[in-house]
Amino acid sequence: MSELDLNDKVSEMLAKSEANVIKSEKTFIHPEDEVREVVAPDGSIIKINPIYDYFSGERPQEEKPRGGIVEKFLNWARSESIWVLGFGTGCGSIEIPPLVTPRFDMFRFGIQMRPTPRQSNAFIISGYLSVKTLKRVIRTYEQMPAPKYVIALGSCTINGGMYYDSYSTINRLDKYIPVDVYIAGCMPRPEALIAGFVKLKELIKEGKAEKANEYARNFDEYKANQKKIIKDWSMPDYNW
């Protein structure tokens, strides 16, 4: 295949992936992320789209559980091996470090911290979530492989808590990403967090923790909610 053909094919694929995503009227793109044409070292002109060149523009698909004994076994394995993304979003993140200390020791329950979203399957939203952080949370959540679980820690994630009338924080987390387990309190102690993990384990074992599929099913609704509140939306619609 010649280089020109390859270029055509790439731009065709690019157009296809752009057509798949929902266009919002109020989309804001940073100037450095705009689609533009650049001259390659060999003199040919190529079109680049910084946002989509590095991400898949495809919508998330629902991944149906296998069912039967295999799924039961896998659900057991998932519940006994919860890898938590180390991403503190609010003041509640101070309650997470005690979990690795001798007093609480979450490793007993098969809960471990992972530093990268690619390898984690549980995401703790620890307390209030500012709009600026919400954008990062969405990017991170979408990069995690399914099945993935969200634990909302503290009252702020349920109704805004003490920040209910703040200009910069969100009130209800589950309008933006689906939540599996809520842990109420301001702030809940590490014991409460462990109780939340135990609840999450029960849900996974019963096969009820399928919120990643719910996110894929109601993708348009979630995206509309997210775009309503994030003004500087300068990222792909789906951040694989």
């Binding site: 998330p60 991944e63 091996s81 399914a146 099945p147």
Partner: peptide, 8 residues
């Protein structure tokens, strides 16, 4: 087993 069972 958990890693093998990842769906996406």
């Amino acid at each position: 087993f958990k890693n093998i069972g990842v769906r996406t």
